[in-house]
Design a binder for these strands. Structure first.
Length: 818
DNA sequence: AGCACGCCGACT
DNA sequence: GTCGGCGTGCTC
């Protein structure tokens, strides 16, 4: 009788041991666990396999990381079962999972879970059966005896079935029954059948005549068989029945006769074949560089700088080349939406097997896509950030488009930066990386400057550089230079109500309207007012659950919290002193529209932000595109309609560089979005004009923006990052703690600070601890928030990630500190 | 997740 | 003394 739960002592048993990543999502960091391998598994256990193990008193699955003849742990539990012999995660991806877990302090189990087929844990079933060969001498408790008796009657059953038929308390006695050997336990992987049904002919075509003879009195069945024979392949059930105008019963009869079989087959979703994008070939200089780059052996990163369409041409040529050489390609985009449009362009321009990884497809499609990629039949995977975890083998090229996009930084889960994960994935498999951008991120360009990445400038950028050189400006913004005016809003004369428009922007708009032109006004806030104040007692409306002020929205006459979406209607009187004199400070899109309406009563004005219903939004955009609307006021939401924004005037109502906010990437974001706006709005206009209203005209990023010089911007920004110890100058970790009780949050934050400080004494090395302090958003959704920010070198900082207990959120290289 | 262990206050 | 609630940390 085998006691499957016995522990193994290393001293007495020189057997085989497996290092396992257990699917427990709260073991932080890259910690793994060691289990002994029973003799029955020694010749079939491999890294990447899925196994069942006991963890604490839970039954969990895990993935084998390595197999060795010794274990660093004295006493080990046994591997209980190999769930399937398939290698679900290849060694390269195991290494990637470990790297992410270590560098971001994320649970290794979480990474493993994201790499396994979707929803895999739902398909793992634990089975129990009474072992008839075992004798019942053991002293069983009443409950155990009852469980055993029921199990004998039921036969082998899954845990879920047992739970239903014998109840929770009996089910708990199972583990003891297993350890005494009276009950056997094993695991099965029951993956759902996926794909649609296909009909297959059983006999050979030569036998067709003979088969048809027996169907003389069944014309429909004969017809089905004839069509099937003519097609000479498996035919989808639906298609076959439609073609023969037959019903399901005829098909069932054919199956009963044993003439056909029906099986499920997964076919990848058909690619969307729109009219092919008219693509010019990639520009020669850039392509020569990329080609040479791809020809060199091993891992290297190159930054491709150019306009969207130009980069796409290079991507496609690069994919063709790599696939022709037998390599696989990953194409990563910041959002699902962008991934889909990249997929459409690539799939219709490349002669390779291209699939789109998306969350919006059905579960079975996702599973099918995962399998197809794993099997190696797929050449190119296109997807949003998480597609860097796709199960690709023979990976030769990773393309990360819009590498500067902030959405690559995950805001939940592992909180990894998926651009960095993609680069690491390529490095592990010695694949090449192309980072595509029009305005590279500070981190990426820093790597260019330090000669870790190579810069490839496309002619669209190169031409601009030449044009700019003549007027003494650097490269970096695309499209004609145009005129840029920066208005100092602290001293500028204002027009209209609400302090929204400067005279300069007003006259620019007036000019533009008189010449029947169009204008885009960019505002960085939705709603009407950022602060609603009582003019008599000074009362201001705050969110009851957060530390934020409520924003007034005109349309619904309500007050909205932009952090938690708490809403209430705007009262007529001040809740404190009953005064009716409520005043609105600051402005958003609504206030700008109202102010403009008063100044330009005859002009049609459109508004585009996330408050506008999605269906209405595209109408607004189209109406602007055809000229029915002359002024468009919007937030960054307008980028969704980037192709419809072409205008003569671009007004930035308030360029806020985030001074006074703990958001060190704010200047980067301002530069990025203003440059992008300028390309999208004024790109085609020789005489295009841009007016930037700002309270900080002397801020280096404002100066760089007005001259359109990327280098100027980069220099000033990297200087400030170095000065403050922000990434990429050093590694930074933010430890965040939230609690209903503000005092408790404060205490906990101080406790962690002490723990971190003593850790620094142990290791002698230095790192800087900022705080503990309440966060800028000190209360959110009824929780008080405290944080600690640590910066130092990579090695040092990684060692701190394990210290905080559960409840702490760890954010490595956060994008803001709000 | 779920259990053990330890600390502290309230009770026999 | 001892019981039990809760917070914390561990699971090979």
């Amino acid at each position: 009788m085998l006691d499957s739960n016995r522990r193994t002592d290393r001293s007495t048993d020189a057997g085989l041991y497996a290092e396992i990543a257990v699917a427990a999502s709260n073991v932080r960091g890259d910690r793994s666990f060691h289990y002994s391998v029973p003799n029955e598994f020694t010749d079939r256990i491999y890294p990447g396999q899925l196994v069942t193990v006991e963890f604490g008193n839970r039954l969990l699955h895990g993935v084998v990381l390595s197999v060795a003849n010794s274990s660093p742990v004295y006493s080990t539990k046994p591997v209980l079962d190999i769930i399937s012999d398939a290698i679900l995660i290849d060694p390269g991806r195991l290494e990637l999972a470990r790297w992410v877990a270590r560098n971001y302090g994320a649970p290794l189990g979480l990474l493993i879970e994201t790499m396994l087929p979707p929803r895999l844990s739902k398909y793992i079933k634990h089975y129990y059966a009474a072992d008839p060969s075992s004798n019942y001498e053991e002293k069983l408790s009443a409950v155990e005896a009852k469980t055993l008796k029921k199990l004998t009657v039921l036969g082998p059953s899954a845990y879920e079935t047992l739970e239903k038929s014998i109840g929770k308390s009996c089910v708990k006695s199972l583990s003891h029954l297993v350890s005494t050997g009276v009950v056997r336990r094993w695991t099965e992987l029951e993956m759902p059948e996926i794909g649609s049904q296909f009909v297959r002919m059983v006999s050979s075509p030569r036998q067709l005549k003979h088969d048809l003879c027996q169907l003389k009195r069944a014309p429909k069945q004969a017809e089905l068989l004839r069509v099937l024979a003519r097609r000479a392949t498996d035919v989808p059930v639906k298609e076959l029945l439609a073609e023969c105008r037959a019903s399901r019963s005829s098909l069932m009869a054919l199956i009963d006769r044993g003439l056909v079989t029906v099986n499920r087959q997964f076919r990848l979703p058909q690619r969307v074949t729109k009219e092919d994008d008219v693509l010019q070939g990639p520009d020669l200089d850039a392509w020569n560089s990329i080609e040479a780059f791809l020809d060199r052996d091993g891992h290297a990163v190159s930054v491709l700088l150019g306009a969207d369409a130009d980069r796409l041409a290079v991507y496609i040529a690069a994919i063709e080349k790599v696939v022709a050489g037998g390599g696989k390609v990953m194409v990563i985009a910041p959002t699902e939406h962008e991934a889909e449009s990249l997929f459409n362009s690539i799939a219709s321009n490349v002669s390779a097997y291209v699939v789109l990884m998306t969350n919006s497809s059905t579960v079975s499609t996702k599973l099918g896509v995962w399998r197809s990629i794993r099997s190696g039949e797929v050449d190119v995977v296109v997807g949003p950030g998480y597609a860097v975890y796709a199960p690709m083998t023979r990976l030769a090229l990773v393309i990360i488009d819009h590498e500067e996009d902030r959405s690559y930084k995950e805001r939940r889960g592992a909180r990894a930066h998926l651009r960095q994960v993609g680069i690491r994935a390529a490095r592990i498999r010695r694949a090449a990386v192309i980072l595509g951008s029009e305005t590279p991120s500070i981190e990426t360009f820093d790597n260019v400057e330090k000669e870790r990445y190579r810069l490839i400038l496309m002619s669209s950028a190169g031409q601009l550089r030449r044009a700019r050189m003549r007027v003494g400006r650097g490269w970096g913004a695309h499209g004609p230079a145009g005129v840029v005016d920066v208005v100092d809003m602290r001293v500028a004369p204002l027009m209209g109500h609400g302090g929204v428009l400067s005279e300069e922007l007003f006259y620019a708009l007036q000019d533009c309207m008189q010449q029947k032109g169009r204008a885009v006004l960019f505002v960085n806030r939705r709603g009407a007012a950022s602060l609603t104040v009582c003019r008599d007692c000074g009362f201001s409306f705050k969110c009851p659950d957060c530390s934020m002020y409520l924003v007034h929205h005109n349309r619904s006459s309500s007050l909205v919290c932009h952090t938690c979406n708490h809403r209430k209607s705007l009262p007529k009187n001040c809740p404190d002193c009953r005064s009716t004199r409520l005043r609105f400070w600051g402005y958003g899109t609504e206030a700008v529209v109202n102010s403009l309406k008063a100044l330009f009563p005859t002009i049609r004005i459109g508004r585009l932000d996330s408050d506008v219903a999605p269906g209405v939004a595209s109408t607004v955009a189209e109406s602007f595109e055809i000229g029915a609307t002359q002024i468009l006021v919007g937030t960054s939401y307008i980028f969704r309609f980037a192709s419809k924004l072409s205008s003569d005037l671009l007004g930035i109502v308030q360029a806020d560089v985030g001074i006074g906010f703990p958001d060190y990437t704010a200047p980067e974001r301002v530069f990025q979005s203003l440059m992008r706006l300028r390309r999208k709005v004024l790109g085609g206009q020789i005489d295009g004009r841009m007016v930037i209203q700002t309270l900080f005209p002397e801020h280096p990023v404002m100066l760089a923006t007005s001259s359109g010089s990327y280098l100027k911007y980069f220099r000033s920004e990297i200087q400030s990052r170095i000065a403050h110890g922000f990434p990429p100058a050093s590694r930074m970790v933010r430890f965040l703690y939230s609690n209903k009780d503000g005092e408790k949050a404060r205490e906990e934050a101080h406790r962690l600070a002490e723990n971190l400080k003593s850790a620094s004494k142990v290791s002698h090395k230095g790192f800087r601890i900022l705080g503990p302090a309440p966060c800028f958003i000190s209360r959110e959704r009824r929780l008080y928030r405290w944080h600690l920010v640590v910066s130092g070198d990579e090695e040092e900082v990684c060692s701190l990630l394990q210290i905080p207990h559960r409840g702490w959120v760890i954010d490595v290289d956060p994008v803001d500190l709000l």
